[in-house]
């Protein structure tokens, strides 16, 4: 089956519906959690783990696996959903998100099988991913390190320190996916602190850049494929829809996180997601 075959794309699309349902369940049963970002980034994380472009073992993580670092730790409902579908832990655990003694911490944590970096304070994960990628180069390990950052996270100076560093050490085994959903906790990125042309910035810092629609699996797959063949570190600027899949949440920054999803609205969102927006 070719990388971009229709059955493969359909499989990813179908899986994303299931993963979005899990993200909503996490939110509904915990009556907390972030939503806008997990729903905008889920197609990207889905593709990392389930497209066969990268190596992530089933049932339990293995030392041979490629590496995925979720720098934007608040997007963890998306990663937890993916790892449960990978069978790293039971899907039923998702309902325990952020509860006392649950392994599913409110921000991404290595307590969860398959998570290799605990995060929550923005701007740090790309440096950590850079360290892993550098170690793999030094140790002659053929692995990819894929980092996922948010667009607003690029307001943190440390991101640009890491971008500068990855260029110096020529880390073409490093891929940074930017979930460019254009919103952050208090409003639109353009209002809070405009980032201008992120792709152009990365190019000036010496990286390869691929710009994609972050919900179009064909585009995502093509960008990943090209990133694995790049002679430089690659930034994939994924233009996404904030809270993708739920009509009344999309493009509304108030759904950055949600603490009171009613039973009625939950039913509505589940229905919308199953239909695919």
């Amino acid at each position: 089956m070719s990388l971009f075959s229709n059955p493969k794309i359909k499989k990813l699309q179908k899986l994303s519906k299931r993963l979005r349902k899990h993200i909503l369940d996490i939110n509904y049963y915990s009556q907390s959690s972030h939503l806008g970002g997990p729903l905008s980034s889920i197609d990207l994380i889905n593709t990392v783990y389930f497209s066969d472009l990268f190596s992530f073992s089933d049932s339990q993580p293995s030392a041979k696996d490629d590496r995925f670092i979720l720098s934007a730790g608040h997007l963890c409902p998306a990663l937890y959903a993916v790892l449960s579908v990978k069978n790293y832990f039971s899907v039923s655990k998702l309902k325990t998100y952020s509860q006392f003694k649950s392994i599913l911490q409110g921000h991404v944590s290595t307590d969860v099988p398959g998570v290799s970096y605990s995060s929550g304070s923005l701007g740090q994960g790309l440096s950590f991913a850079t360290g892993l990628a550098l170690a793999d180069k030094i140790d002659h390990k053929k692995k990819f390190t894929i980092c996922l950052t948010s667009d607003a996270e690029h307001q943190e100076g440390q991101i640009w320190e890491a971008v500068t560093f990855a260029n110096k050490y020529n880390l073409n085994n490093l891929i940074n996916i930017v979930d460019n959903n254009k919103y952050q906790i208090d409003g639109a990125v353009d209002d809070i602190m405009p980032l201008e042309d992120l792709g152009a910035k990365y190019i000036h810092f010496g990286w390869s850049v691929k710009e994609v629609n972050g919900h179009d699996f064909k585009q995502i797959l093509r960008a990943f494929k090209q990133a694995t063949q790049s002679i430089r570190p690659t930034a994939i600027i994924a233009h996404t829809t904030f809270a993708k899949g739920v009509s009344f949440m999309q493009h509304d920054y108030h759904y950055h996180d949600l603490k009171n999803l009613s039973s009625k609205l939950y039913q509505q969102t589940v229905k919308e997601i199953s239909q695919g927006l």
């Binding site: 790309l126 440096s127 991913a129 360290g131 892993l132 440390q158």
Partner: peptide, 14 residues
């Protein structure tokens, strides 16, 4: 760039 240096160190260490 101390912040990045420290994060890179953590990645190497892991």
């Amino acid at each position: 760039a101390e912040n990045n240096a420290t994060g890179v160190a953590a990645g190497l260490a892991k």
